[in-house]
Design a protein around this nucleic acid. Structure first.
Lengths: 210, 210
DNA sequence: CCCTATGCTGAACATCTGTTCAGTCCTGGC
DNA sequence: GCCAGGACTGAACAGATGTTCAGCATAGGG
């Protein structure tokens, strides 16, 4: 994914096709991305797209594999060290950096998650798994209060932390922010922290809450 | 929207077409819904779909208008009474009831919101507006603590409250729940209440939070 | 030089999509 | 009975899509 540092003319046609397809899928979604549009953007013929990847679905699958591997490689933990209570947080910070470097990555991941693809469903579940492990660690360490339903609260934590990606366009519209700008992320993070460290409805019990 | 109480054979062809299109759009999205599929489900010819609505986009627009009006009619407040601090909450409860009655409504609304349609963006923003007004009311009444960034926190509140619709499939997969079942909503609501009434990280300041 | 493998193309194909068109049938009004 | 309007259809059309096919160019090896 060093597409920003290497000019398109330095790439093989296959690499150009893959990059073009990635960009188009991120911008428009799978359905609105045609083989002809990919070919045009890559500067090749439609037949070559099919030649290299076997079919349109072949291209789509290849991108998915490519991105999943890229994410895995770039967000995973070093083997040694690191507080388990912060593992997901560190992944999210790394992910933020990646999105800042390759803005289309956020859009691609959002589509993958929201379009009902099996990969997206499993990826979301995995993220909730990590969030739940992390929250459990924090409880044991006395950093977090006990939760009646730890998994549901972990899902909420993940949704809040990942909302700028998952719901980026909606939030950008509703809050007049631009998540390509670091300050918008900071704004979101600060509000999130406040919500989690200071009860919004301090005088209410859970049963009383609105 | 009394489609559940009136058998299809009692409807005009136009109404059947509209209901078929609604169901297909909710299930598959606009792109994967073809005029021929609508026609087949409605038991008419494709030409009749066009005859009644002018074009495929005409059908799509007609459904959108129909649903927005239906939602407006069924979630809006009576003119008199009602605590402003609970206005959005009451709307959400009414919406939940509607979704329980017409499950496809949730799926339709989710697609409208997530597919980047102008209507969906504006609708989301309007919901955040309401959430912010409500939160402001609660602060003034002393029911909620002051927020540094009220609007961002209001957006978070709305996202959490509406997540079973907005992110239904993801959550169903990650939490092994089914939001057609009332108990799953109750589970979500209870966890949400706990998060909002009891600081998850009570010993931390906002700057220290993970 | 010849052969093979790889990269690549333009043209053509089969299928699908949204839409138009000409025509039939039914109903209600005069 | 006749006419107009509305409901409705099947066939056809034009354009778009994913894919196949035949062929050309280049590079490397024997």
């Amino acid at each position: 994914m060093s597409t920003q540092l290497t000019g398109p003319e330095d790439l093989t046609a296959k690499a150009r096709i893959r990059a073009a397809a990635f960009a188009l899928v991120a911008e428009r979604g799978v359905h609105s991305t045609t083989v002809r549009a990919i070919a045009q953007r890559a500067g090749v013929s439609p037949a070559l797209v099919i030649h290299h990847f076997g079919s349109k679905q072949g291209v789509i699958d290849a991108i998915s594999t490519w991105i999943v591997e890229y994410l895995h490689r770039n967000t995973r933990e070093p083997d040694r060290g690191g507080d388990p209570a912060q593992a997901l947080q560190r992944r999210l910070v790394r992910f933020e950096r990646m999105v800042a470097e390759v803005p289309l990555l956020g859009a691609y991941v959002r589509r993958m998650l929201l379009d009902g693809q099996p990969d997206g469903l499993d990826w979301f579940r995995r993220a909730v798994d990590l969030s739940a492990e992390e929250l459990a660690h924090r409880e044991r360490m006395g950093k977090a209060r006990p939760s009646t339903d730890l998994r549901a609260e972990a899902a909420m934590l993940f949704i809040l932390g990942f909302a700028p990606v998952l719901l980026g366009p909606l939030l950008e519209h509703a809050l007049d922010v631009d998540f390509d700008d670091e300050r918008s992320w900071t704004r979101w993070r600060d509000a999130e922290s406040e919500l989690l460290t200071s009860a919004l409805y301090p005088g209410a019990t859970a049963a009383d809450a609105p």
